[in-house]
Each structure stands twice: as C-alpha cells, then as structure tokens.
Amino acid sequence: MTAPAPGQALRRALGAAFGGAMNLLEAPMRLAQAKLRGGRIGWVFVVPNLSVFGLFTFLPILIDLVYAATGGNQLFPAQRPYVGTANFRALLACRNYLDPNTCTRDLFWHGVYNTAEFVVLQVGFMVGLSLVTALALNRPGRGRGFFRAVFFYPVLLSPVVVALIWKWVLQRYGVLNALLSALGLAPHDWLLNATTAFFWSVFVSIWAHMGFYTLILLAGLQAIPRDVYEAAAMDATPPWRRFRRITLPLLMPSLLVVLVLALIRAVQIFDEVYVLTGGGPGTSTTFLVQFIYQTGFAQQVREYGMAAAASLLLAGVLMALTVLQLRLARPKS
C-alpha cells in the first residue's frame, strides 16, 4: 500500500520510455523479417555496429595510409601532395640509431626510446606488484573487501585527476618534500629533473593502473581449487615452495594475459604523464603517443602526414602484441 520509492518510480519511468522506444522499432523490424528469410535477419542486427566500425575504425586505417603517403599541412586528402615514403624516411633517418639527437626527427626517437624504457620498467614493476598484492589479498580474513577496494580505487580516477593529485604531492613545497625535510633529507624539484621526473611518471602510472591487474590476478588465484593447498598443508610444504610449485604454475594463464594487456596499455602511455610533466623536462618524459598528438594537433603547423606515419609504426607494434594476446587468451582445448 506504500507509495513507491522515488528510485523505483524513476526506474519504472525509464523502463517505460525504453520499452516504448523499443516498441517503435517493432514494425520496421517485422517488415525486414518478412523480407529476409532464414538467418539473414541477423544482418539487420549487425549493421549498426558494423557501420560505426567501418566509419571510425576500418576507413581510418585506409585514410592513415593516405595521410602517411602525402605531405603538406592540409586536412583534406584531395589537397595534399603525394610524397611516397618521404614521411617514413624522415622519421627513420638517423646517423646513429643509438643517439636520438642525430636523427632528423629527434623528438620521434626520444619518444621511441623513452617509451621502450617506460614499458620495461612500468610493466615489470606493475605486474610484480599486482601479483604480490593479489597474493596478499587472497587470504581469508577481515577487511579484505576494504583492502581490495582501496587498491582498485585509483583505476576509476580520470588520468587528469591522477596527475594533479601527484603534482600537488610532488611540487616544490609539497607534502613529500615536507616529509623529507622533517626526516632531515634534502627536498627536490621532483618534476624538474629528468631522472626523477621519469621515475615519478612510472610510479604514478603504476599507482593508477595496478588495481585493475590485481583484480584479474586475484580472480585467477581464487579459481585455484582449495584442496590442492590442503594437500600441501598435509605434507607441511613451506610457503615458498607452495608458491613455486602450486600457485605460480596454476596462475600462469592469468599472469600471461595480464602481462600482454599491460604491455598494450603501456606502449600507448600518454594521458597521466602528459598532464603530470607535459613531456618534460626537455624531452625526458615525451612518449610516442605524445609525439603523434603534438605533431598532428598541437603544433603551429600541423603535420598530419608525419603523425599518421608514426601512428602506423605504432600500429605495427600493437598488432604484434594483440596477436600475442589472442594466442594466449585462446583456451587450450
């Protein structure tokens, strides 16, 4: 007899609106059904999705090729002069490949080397820490839900928010320097020094993302049957051996998936570091995606062709990683 709660009323209203909209589609769909016999009605369901894919994923790859093969700074391809492989040659021209400063597009090579270094450090430490955290979380006991939530929370934050939180902690008169002074240590301009800025870029991106990978690994750990451990306890197996002989092998599939996902994400690092350091000081935290963004959109003279060429090189790397992911994700049957 009680009036429905406001939440319930809202839900009912939304449900009715949604139902009405769906009913409107009923008539045209019936018509299509009458025309398309058998399973071919399936096409009607696939078309909306496929058109968005076509327009914003497949077509763009072809346009990327057109841009990469043309020069100038016009946006519309018809107005761009054909230059063949000149963009790629310019990007890849180096007198000494180990020294980015000898390259025609030195920013690109700084980006390549920084990204490579970042990927190795960030993925290595992050997957390691996620594993340790998942192991620590995977024990019965009070407060586990709380700990899991705390580690996951930063994943939900916008990269801009993440960067500003840490910028505030790391600034010259920030709390980190205050703590160091209290301990009698020297304060630093953390983001104005190439080495420390790079360190904090890695740290902050681990801070922001490790909760996600921890969660996947935790799910993997919880899928390991308990009786295996009980058998090990029967034999008084020490913890380290329990980990090496039981946990690690059984967790390996999840661990590999996490590793590849983290690699794919790390290669595309941009958002939080760009807000945190702006790519500096100098070029010390400029990564590949920032090069693409800057070359294509932030410069005075927009070099779309150069940006597209760099995108295609990045796409090559990502494609290799994705093939690896699909290989690993496929269940062994």
């Binding site: 914003f56 994923t57 077509l59 763009p60 790859i61 072809l62 346009i63 990327d64 841009y67 794919i264 595309q268 941009f270 995606v289 693409i292 963004y293 294509g296 959109f297 779309y304 940006a307 597209a308 995108s311 295609l312 990045l314 796409a315 990502l318 494609m319 994705t322 093939v323 992911q325 699909l326």
Partner: peptide
C-alpha cells in the same frame, strides 16, 4: 582489437 583510438587519431 588491434586498432586502438591512438592510431586513428588523424583520420
């Protein structure tokens, strides 16, 4: 899956 938004930015 192999085409993340970062590589089709310009097109």
């Amino acid at each position: 899956l192999m085409v993340p938004p970062t590589i089709v930015l310009v097109p």
